[in-house]
Design a binder for these strands. Structure first.
Lengths: 120, 120
DNA sequence: GAAATCAGTATACATAAGGAAACTAGTTAC
DNA sequence: GTAACTAGTTTCCTTATGTATACTGATTTC
């Protein structure tokens, strides 16, 4: 599928291949979107709960990123009109479709960690 | 592997799962690292050649990102002492280990594109 | 001889992303 | 009555990212 050699090639071939890769990156950009999605894979969560679980995230970033994820239909926001109001976030089926990608990210991260161990 | 339910769970479980995911994200952060790697999957390249192939990247960003990728041993920089000097960038075997991840990114991007088509 | 190419670096600037802390308004626990 | 919790928003600030232009020193092309 991808050339292994050193020879010249058609730059359009690469650009065409790259386009959908960049589409994904545009939607998952930044430091927090994937961690937020992973957090919701483990169950529905309330705002503060997520903030506690995802180490280092601020309320501002969490709020902003959740809005973007909601717009892209990866995450769903549900308000229960109890008093005080309860807001629950959950993963959508579309958000679940990132499962394979996230598995790959995780397994590469594990390999990388092992590699660093060996070196030091 | 990942819970489907809504029930409460141990936040440590999620944090542990998340750690290697975040390790990967730290190394592949930003808009350009993955596109640079993909470009080199298609063959060794010279600086200007890459700049032409990766649409939108500036010399400054390309230079900066290549340095970071080199530090992490995902990309190799080779200088030929011809006149004028020729500098060639290539993917390392370690860089190749991102192949599955990039395939997933690409196939998710393709799905996403299809989905957007249906909607409009 | 002028222009373009190569592999970047330097400078100045503008915008985006991210972080720290305070704050809201209502509720519950002590 | 005081403190803490909830779901965020607001403000101020610092980095990071991106843009634009000019520059290097040698070489090839017209």
């Amino acid at each position: 599928m991808i050339a292994e050699n050193t020879k010249a090639h058609d730059p359009k071939e690469c650009r065409g291949y790259l386009q959908p890769v960049r589409d994904s990156l545009d939607i998952l950009n930044g430091k927090w979107k994937i961690p937020i999605i992973v957090s919701l894979y483990f169950g529905n969560k309330r705002f503060k709960e997520m903030q506690r679980e995802i180490e280092g995230i601020t309320a501002k970033m969490l709020s902003k990123e959740l809005k973007e994820l909601e717009m892209n239909e990866l995450v769903k926001r549900t308000v229960f009109d109890s008093l005080p109001v309860i807001v629950e976030y959950s993963i959508t089926p579309y958000g679940r479709s990132l499962q394979n990608l996230i598995n790959e990210l995780r397994s590469w991260g594990l390999q990388h960690r092992k590699r660093l161990m060996k070196k030091s």
